[in-house]
Structure formats: structure tokens, C-alpha cells
């Protein structure tokens, strides 16, 4: 069974009212909102890949756990009955913190012991962790979809012509933007970010600089997982259902977004996410939502054939 984002909360006035330009602008807004969620998840793939050369297949499932932590936090705070922006912030922090811890544990327990093993072992383990989280999720959370409380009651912030921007979309865009700028600052301006960039070239040389490489790797997993958790909450805000398999398809699509932008490249992940979100929205708006998922995989195949290093990727030769 595969999960798809169900239709979003609230109505989409543009789709109902207008044709032509208004419809297009509405699809543009919806597509950017969807794309920034993909981008947040894609950042986690790209960060971990940049440092460990590992496709962390469990990343989509960490996104799912983030949504569930958000669900439980929201229930504990009665955020559905009495929603406030503060509660939304607390739910966000709980999910990001919880997933940072989960990412830390996954790295420590599953990947760290394989540090010296061939890379293929690491990849297979990542698939194993993914299956573990999905099945454990079904045992712990139950297999049926759960309603995600409305953390921010739907309102239309402003509309122009027939196109409308809802508060949900504004929150999705605003949160993503803040997190992306924060990540850029972390990686480019801080000492820890410098250490991360050093590790992305060589762990051995980085350790000769006095960098505790194990800690930096663990930190990278925490950051990537926290971003996935934020994406999980934003999906919960925009679409009302969460279930234990909800991470599979968005996880794969965000991976496609990361590859599209050039895996290991931070800006590439953001651009890749936006391109994927926009094109999915346009395809389902103008053709049929049936083709939406096919599009993502079509893009993946096309990149692998035409530009395997992605839009912003360097063509790295594997060193032996």
C-alpha cells in the first residue's frame, strides 16, 4: 500500500473559480508549498550523503515519526481544540527534538558499528532501518491513518484574482525558509559547519585537524532528522492524515529531488525539491493526478541518463 498526500485542507478557490492565469498562479502557489516540504526532506538526504556517502533510506520514515510525535504533542497540548501559534511552535519543537534524538540513535546503533565495513553493508542496513521503523510504526501507532489535529485553523490570508494563499501555505513557506536559511548559516558560517564541510571531503584528514569526526557525523544526522520532522509537521498542517507508511513515497520523492539538484549539494536539494513540487502540481492540475508519481520517477530516470551528477553536482570520480 502506498501513501499519497490526500487533498489538502480547505478549499482551493483558484481551482474552482478561475481559468487561465488564476489557475496557473494557484498551481504555482500550491506547487511551491509542496516543493518546500520536499526540499526540507531532501536536505536530510543530501547532508548525510555529503558526509557519509550513504543514501539514508530510513530518512522518509524519520519524517513519518516526526509527524506522529507532532500528533501526540498536539493531543497532549489539546492543540486541536484550542489552537494557538505557541502550541504550533511547541509541537514543532517536540517533533524536531524527538527526531534529532531518533537520528542520533539510528546513527549510533545501526550505522556507526559499520564504519569500517564496505559501503554496500551500510546501504542494506539503511533499508533494514527503514523497514524496522515502518513496521514498528504499525505496531506502536496502529496501521490505520490518524487524523492530524488542525493546529492552525484554515484561513485565506490574501487572494488576488482567483488565486489564494492560505495561512497553511504561508506557514509552510515561512518555516521552510527559516530552516533553510538557518542551515545555510550553520554550514557556511559556523565552526561546526566548517568541520562538516571538511568531513565531506575526507574523514581522515578532518581528524588530523583535531575534529572529533564521530560527533560531527552524529550531529549531521540530528540536523537532517530534525528537518524531516519539521516537514512531517508541515504535512500534518496541510493534509489531515498521518499513518506509519506515509514516509515511503515522500521519502522516495525527496530523494529524487536531492538527486535532481545534485546529491550532497545543499542548494541543489532546495531547488530540486521546488522543481519536483511545482512539476507535480502542474501535472496533476493540467493533466491528471494519475501521472503525478510517474513524473517523479520519470525525472529520476531522465537525470540518471542525461546528467547523473544533478543540476548543481560536481562530477566526482570515486576515489579508491
Amino acid at each position: 500500500m502506498r501513501y499519497k498526500f490526500p487533498s489538502s485542507r480547505g478549499s482551493s478557490p483558484g481551482a474552482a473559480l478561475g481559468t487561465g492565469m488564476q489557475t496557473f498562479v494557484q498551481h504555482l502557489i500550491d506547487g511551491i508549498a509542496l516543493g518546500s516540504i520536499y526540499a526540507l526532506i531532501a536536505l536530510g538526504y543530501t547532508l548525510v550523503y555529503g558526509i557519509l556517502r550513504l543514501i539514508n533510506f530510513a530518512h522518509g520514515d524519520i519524517f513519518m515519526v516526526g509527524a506522529f510525535i507532532g500528533l501526540f504533542a498536539a493531543q497532549a497540548l489539546h492543540a486541536g481544540a484550542d489552537p494557538t501559534p505557541l502550541k504550533f511552535g511547541l509541537v514543532m519543537l517536540a517533533a524536531m527534538g524527538g527526531c534529532a534524538l531518533l537520528g542520533f540513535l539510528v546513527e549510533r546503533l545501526a550505522y556507526r558499528p559499520l564504519q569500517q565495513a564496505p559501503r554496500i553493508n551500510l546501504l542494506i542496513t539503511a533499508v533494514g532501518v527503514s523497514l524496522l521503523l515502518e513496521n514498528l510504526g504499525q505496531v506502536v501507532f496502529g496501521p490505520n491513518p490518524k487524523f492530524f489535529p488542525d493546529l492552525l485553523p484554515h484561513t485565506v490570508l490574501f487572494s488576488f484574482g482567483g488565486a489564494a494563499v492560505s495561512n497553511h501555505q504561508a506557514v509552510v513557506l515561512g518555516t521552510s525558509l527559516v530552516l533553510m536559511v538557518g542551515l545555510e548559516w550553520l554550514v557556511l558560517k559556523t565552526r561546526l559547519g566548517l568541520a562538516m564541510r571538511a568531513l565531506s571531503h575526507s574523514h581522515e584528514t578532518a581528524s588530523l585537524m583535531g575534529i572529533p569526526t564521530g560527533l560531527v557525523i552524529a550531529f549531521t544526522f540530528c540536523v537532517g532528522s530534525a528537518l524531516a520532522a519539521a516537514a512531517g509537521i508541515l504535512v500534518g498542517v496541510s493534509y489531515p492524515r498521518v499513518d506509519p507508511l506515509m514516509g515511503i513515497l515522500p521519502g522516495i520523492k525527496a530523494f529524487v529531488a536531492a538527486v535532481l539538484g545534485g546529491i550532497g549539494n545543499i542548494r541543489g536539494a532546495v531547488v530540486g525539491g521546488l522543481i519536483l513540487g511545482l512539476s507535480e502540481e502542474m501535472v496533476s492540475g493540467y493533466f491528471s493526478s494519475t501521472y503525478r508519481d510517474a513524473l517523479a520517477f520519470g525525472i529520476l530516470i531522465a537525470i540518471l541518463l542525461l546528467k547523473p551528477e544533478g543540476l548543481f553536482g560536481r562530477n566526482e570520480v570515486e576515489k579508491v
Binding site: L194, A195, R197, A198, H201, S202, A206
Partner: peptide, 13 residues
Amino acid sequence: FPNLTVMENLRLG
């Protein structure tokens, strides 16, 4: 570190 600037390499030192 070829991916970093001269200055960044020295800061890592």
C-alpha cells in the same frame, strides 16, 4: 581540502 578556500583550510588547522 580542495572544496574549501585557503583561508578556510587554515582555520581548520
